[in-house]
């Protein structure tokens, strides 16, 4: 999986995602496409992708195991992987890189890297974007840039999204407004990660998303992203240090409680599990804990495997009802080190 590779600053930044969207000239946008248009686009993108060794799958031909496998790679949303429409997915040999065909835009290139590395994620996505631009007739105007059905992505078509865990900032009075102001200053947006049932609940995990695609160059976007992420990391670390020094006993207590609960629990709700993982993050570097076996690799593995799991969105009622027990099993085996 993409998150198995080592990443920068994974104590705060879980992963960086870059999406580049492109549309093909000569076809209407996806909402106005006929079935034969969709087939043609699938065929064209598939052919262009095969030249650089991308594997092609159609979502309407996938079985449940394959759907789960593709969803857990983190490239696509459930609406695509479970959708009955004529979506296609091109998967690269590089972990975390793929292309979604016919979902809002004709071509959506997704690139995921663990930790904080906006440039690498961008470069991987750009490589594919340039290939499609050279080999296909891509809709482009000098005035608006790359055209898209959504006014919010017309222009560069590049969006950066960074997933961060910020329990320190969240638990420090007055730090969250400092962060939101900084994000506003960069014209970015911040969202709490959604609970599996779609509700938003504070779990200390957020995604920070770029908004602007016009009036900005790729260089400026990436520079802005790097600066913003560096600010967040710095703020979060200083908050963690501060809390662990001033409220040592409380953090120690919560840290050990979270560790013990995660190691032995038998049922785990999504948001409870994420909250406990956030406590581990908070104390890991600043609480002395030689007597227990917990590493950043384990914490990151827990975060990623709990955060995106196809079973949470299964269409099978039995699987959904059984989720808390299954999730607990998964968490226990990661804590034991069975899943390395």
């Amino acid at each position: 999986m993409w998150y198995d590779a080592p990443g920068n600053n994974t104590d705060v930044v879980i992963g960086t995602k870059v999406v580049i969207t492109r549309n093909i000239k000569g076809f209407p946008f996806v909402t106005k496409m006929t079935d034969s248009d969709k087939e043609n686009v699938l065929g064209m993108v598939r052919q262009a992708g095969s030249q650089i060794g991308l594997d092609f799958v159609r979502t309407d031909e996938l079985d449940d195991v394959a759907r789960a496998d593709i969803f857990n790679k983190g490239l696509v949303a459930t609406s695509v992987v479970n959708g009955e429409d004529k979506y296609g997915i091109l998967i690269s040999k590089k972990e975390g890189v793929g292309v979604i065909v016919n979902s809002i835009d004709h071509i959506s290139i997704v690139s995921l890297v663990p930790g904080d590395d906006v440039l690498l994620a961008y470069k991987r996505a750009e490589e594919l974007a340039v290939h499609f631009e050279k080999n296909m007739d891509i809709a482009f105007s000098d005035k608006y840039g790359f055209l898209s059905p959504r006014i919010s992505t017309v222009g560069t078509g590049v969006r950066v999204s960074v997933c961060v865990a910020i329990p320190g900032i969240e638990k420090t009075t007055g730090a969250l407004p400092i962060l939101t102001k900084r994000i506003e200053k960069y014209d970015w947006a911040m969202n709490a990660i959604a609970n599996v049932d779609g509700s938003m609940r504070e779990t200390s995990h957020y995604t920070i998303n770029s908004v602007t695609t016009l009036g900005i160059t790729e260089q400026e976007l990436i520079d802005g992203a790097n600066r913003l992420v560096a600010d967040i990391i710095k703020l979060e670390r200083s908050c963690r240090k501060n809390i662990c020094a001033k409220k040592k006993v409380i953090v120690e207590d919560q840290f050990y409680r979270a560790y013990a609960t995660l190691k032995y629990l038998r049922r785990a709700d999504f948001s409870d599990a994420m909250t406990m993982i956030a406590w581990l993050r908070l104390g890991q570097d600043y609480i002395k804990h030689d007597d227990i076996d917990i590493t950043w690799e384990k914490i990151n593995k827990l975060t990623n495997m709990v955060r995106k799991n196809y079973d949470d969105y299964s269409r099978d009622r039995k699987v959904i009802n059984n989720r808390p027990t299954q999730r607990a099993e998964l968490i226990r085996s990661i804590m034991k080190g069975d899943i390395a």
Binding site: V130, K134, T156, T212, L214, E218, Q219
Partner: peptide, 17 residues
């Protein structure tokens, strides 16, 4: 977006970052 001017890269070019 607050701006309507496209100043990104041209198709097929690589952004020099």
């Amino acid at each position: 977006q607050g701006s309507s001017d496209y100043i990104g890269r041209k198709p097929g070019e690589i952004a020099n970052i």
